[in-house]
């Protein structure tokens, strides 16, 4: 999987799983302001990315991301490092009540 495949897959997840218009999904798009994604969506995005790429992602890292480009860079970085990060022991999730 090369870098453009990674980006295409991430964008496809955002479009299909989160029902966004493809035109909205650009690297500079803000996840919260432009795409209206929230903390519940962040958890689900981690699940979708992990399934798509067969990697483990620290949910806390994803929660700090601001833009689509941040996700691109993070996942590409994971692939380029050749070392998949271990899962966080306690992934930050929406508090249950």
């Amino acid at each position: 999987m090369d870098a453009s495949d990674v980006i295409r897959t991430i964008d496809r997840i955002l479009v299909e799983d989160f029902e966004l218009d493809a035109e909205q999904v650009v690297p500079e798009a803000s996840l919260r302001e432009d795409l209206d994604l929230d903390s519940l969506d962040a958890v689900d995005l981690v699940v979708a990315l992990e399934k798509a790429f067969g990697i483990r992602i620290d949910a806390k890292v994803v929660e700090k991301m601001q833009t689509v480009g941040d996700i691109h860079a993070y996942v590409r970085g994971v692939f380029e490092s050749g070392e998949f990060p271990a899962a966080a022991p306690e992934p930050a999730r929406e508090a249950g009540k």
Binding site: S39, L40, D41, V43, D44, V47, E50, K51, A87, E94
Partner: peptide
């Protein structure tokens, strides 16, 4: 538990 979505419950 990693594949469970936040909205499942």
């Amino acid at each position: 538990a990693r594949g469970i979505r936040s909205t499942h419950f």
